[in-house]
């Protein structure tokens, strides 16, 4: 078991470290990563999500249960994010950041680990789809409202976000049976094939240790919520819904994953504490590297 976990996790976190090393060593400075990040957000991640969702078998036994547990997990984490912010008396913008980080988990890291543990045909779409829609929805709405932009601005931002568009298009393609058209899907599959590695490398390059200075309470709350409370809740939900083995581990991976890197893009768009959000993402990457293997092992044992 421990060898399986180590061999799955080590290369994935090594890629994040490699991305950081390439940026920190000056081999590829911060300015050059702008294009990679744009490609990730506008092309690679949407292509990955579209292919994953378009090809998913949502009618399979267990898919509805996984989706239900994932939905409930996201809703609980949104509520806990708000509760923690209230407890710590955070300002509106800080609250938006904490809720976003608590609710929007890193789906690429989750799927990269799931595929290394369970093979390329892992059925992750049922967990990913509600997680992305609810997490991104909460993040964008929170940032928009805290900056006084209003619900209309939030809806406009969501309507033109490539990640959310890809999710909706993936569902439409799935329903319409477009997954059976290889001419449409194969170029996107080839594009999506590279997405995981590039996104993980960019995640590493985006680690900002300088952002860890100051506002320790908000940072610690984000790490606690993302790396300890969330995996416990997702694992509890898995057990409560009667899920075991691979399905329980999938939920545990989602629950314990670090905050999604795209959260920073949302925060920057609304000029809503991007520095704090960068610090929260950086810290949750570090804490999840410690807790996620343990949570996954636990999920596979119960």
């Amino acid at each position: 078991m421990s060898m399986l976990i180590a061999s799955a996790f080590a290369p994935v976190f090594a890629m994040i470290a490699l991305g950081w090393g390439v940026r920190a060593s000056g081999l590829m400075g911060r300015d050059l990563w702008g294009g990679v990040n744009a490609l990730n957000h506008r092309v690679l991640l949407p292509a990955f999500l579209f292919v994953l969702i378009a090809r998913a078998e949502f009618g399979e036994a267990g898919a509805a249960t996984l989706a239900g547990a994932s939905t409930l997990g996201s809703l609980i984490m949104i509520a806990l994010g708000f509760a923690a912010a209230r407890l710590l008396r955070l300002k509106a913008a800080e609250t938006a950041g904490l809720v976003a980080v608590a609710a929007l988990w890193n789906l690429v890291l989750t799927m990269a680990l799931a595929q290394r543990l369970f093979g390329p045909d892992t059925a992750g779409a049922a967990v990913v789809l509600p997680g992305v829609l609810l997490g991104a929805g909460a993040a964008v709405a929170g940032f928009a409202i805290s900056q006084g932009a209003g619900p209309q601005a939030a809806l406009m931002r969501m309507a033109r976000d490539p990640v959310l568009i890809a999710c909706v298009a993936g569902v439409a393609a799935n329903v319409a049976g477009l997954a059976r058209l290889p001419a449409l899907l194969t170029p996107l599959e080839l594009t999506a094939a590279g997405s995981m590695a590039v996104i993980l490398l960019a995640m590493g390059a985006g680690l900002d240790f300088a952002a860890l200075k100051g506002r320790l309470r908000a940072l610690a709350a984000a790490a606690l919520l993302r790396s300890l409370i969330s995996p416990a809740i997702y694992l509890g939900l898995a057990l409560g819904f009667g899920l075991r083995g691979e399905e329980a581990a999938l939920l545990a991976l989602a629950g314990g994953a670090p905050a999604a890197a795209v959260t920073y893009a949302f925060a920057a768009d609304f000029k809503c504490e991007p520095g704090l959000v960068a610090g929260m993402i950086t810290l949750t990457v570090l804490t999840s590297a410690l807790t996620l293997p343990l949570v996954t092992a636990l999920a596979l044992m119960v």
Binding site: S7, A10, P11, V12, A14, M15, L18, L39, V43, L44, A112, L190, T191, A192, A193, G194, S195, M196, A197, V198, L201
Partner: peptide
């Protein structure tokens, strides 16, 4: 095989889509 080989293979998978783009 092992850690280095797995990491190189994972990183390498991204090469072709990106260079084609």
């Amino acid at each position: 095989d092992g850690f280095i080989a797995d990491t190189a293979a994972l990183v390498g998978r991204a090469a072709l889509p990106l260079i084609l783009l």
